[in-house]
Design a protein around this nucleic acid. Structure first.
Lengths: 210, 210
DNA sequence: CCGGTAATTCGCAACGGTCCGTCCAGTTAA
DNA sequence: TTAACTGGACGGACCGTTGCGAATTACCGG
């Protein structure tokens, strides 16, 4: 999914070296447990999917991960920071469909929108979208990286650009805004909790391509 | 703003009459204090604007309203229900700009988007949008009524329909989806917390009108 | 018409419960 | 020796509920 897996998980080092990072000086004492770190992120992903973002608690994550609460507080400043890291490490999201390329941009977009709708309509996925939105509301990092982590923008944008190159779409089309509008439509649907009409995919694409 | 002010505030009557609502049977005992009800909604609006949705607490609302906590729990089942009522009674939202109608749909939309951006960019308004989104995530009623309460959909839709009638836009344009895409773009901007580029209004409209 | 009673509101205050974020003690690993 | 780990305990915030006394309002018997 996200191919730009930035490596984080060190948002607040409890004792930053303060040294000018000169080579040769090595920290003394035990090193951070990678096992604990991955256990926390994996537990966060599990609980996020089952309970949803707002029922997520630090104590719950610690228990699920088999880790002391202090270990979480040592490395992450807040619940939302843990979620942000879990998001970056692709532990929150299932794979999403790619945009087909048959040469017909309209049909391809409709097919993609339709498959995304079907994906989100699966039981359990409905609240997941809202959980992501809620997390993004709370934490700027999550909001900023959500696009990258989802990979939707990149996926759709490349297909759009191909259509632009093929002359099917105007050369000066603001691709970023186009994708934002498309994804934003989904977000509003998730917020409104409206049952999507069967032809909503076709309508959404027709609203954007005319 | 919202002209469809449904009257609610009675979401869970503690003792429903159970009588077949036959006329003539009248309740005994003290009647609900309208003063307390409006004080709660007004306090909710104030705190919502200043603190944001997630820092809102029942106890805080009660204190701000000068009202007992039980009085709130007697009439509303949750924090989000209070917010939903406050939203319906127009206590949460400032007025929003209307779409001008100069005959040029493109220029009108750009002007409207620009003024909305400027409105939201005002200090204090930035978090308000995210607070509304967060509230909608939590409560289906809020999500369902947010569109009506904002009045944005209706405002923009009428202008779009006028452009369709004038032949500037295709007759089969799915207006609802079009507006949803436009508003959804704003929502994503609010979630991403990106500083909007100066020409973002023009780009957004160009992404939708081509 | 008057006064009692029942029903229902309100405010105040307390309760147990959950989760927060912090701290300390003891153990383990580099 | 130093730092990360576990486990436990702490005060505090807020939750949602409960009990109490006082006020308000309708019904009912004198």
């Amino acid at each position: 999914m996200s191919h730009v897996s930035l490596r984080l998980g060190m948002l607040r080092a409890p004792k930053m070296p303060l040294m000018p990072a000169s080579a040769g000086v090595r920290r003394r004492g035990a090193v951070r447990s990678e096992e604990a770190r991955t256990a926390v992120l994996a537990a966060t992903g599990r609980l996020f999917a089952t309970e949803g973002y707002d029922h997520l608690t630090i104590e719950g994550i610690a228990a699920e991960a088999g880790v002391s609460k202090q270990t979480i507080y040592r490395w992450w400043p807040s619940k939302s920071a843990v979620v942000a890291d879990a998001l970056i490490e692709d532990r929150l999201l299932p794979d999403h469909p790619v945009v087909p390329d048959t040469g017909d941009i309209r049909a391809d977009l409709i097919a993609w929108v339709q498959s995304v709708i079907e994906l989100v309509a699966q039981p359990g996925y409905e609240g997941l979208v809202r959980s992501l939105i809620a997390a993004a509301c709370e934490n700027p990092d999550i909001g900023a990286r959500l696009n990258d982590a989802l990979g939707i923008t990149a996926t759709v944008a490349t297909r759009i650009e191909a259509a632009v190159a093929a002359g099917q779409l105007p050369a000066d089309l603001p691709v970023e805004e186009f994708v934002r509008a498309l994804v934003g439509g989904f977000v509003l649907h998730a917020l409104e909790r409206t049952e999507p009409a069967p032809d909503v995919a076709e309508r959404m694409v027709r609203a954007l391509l005319h």
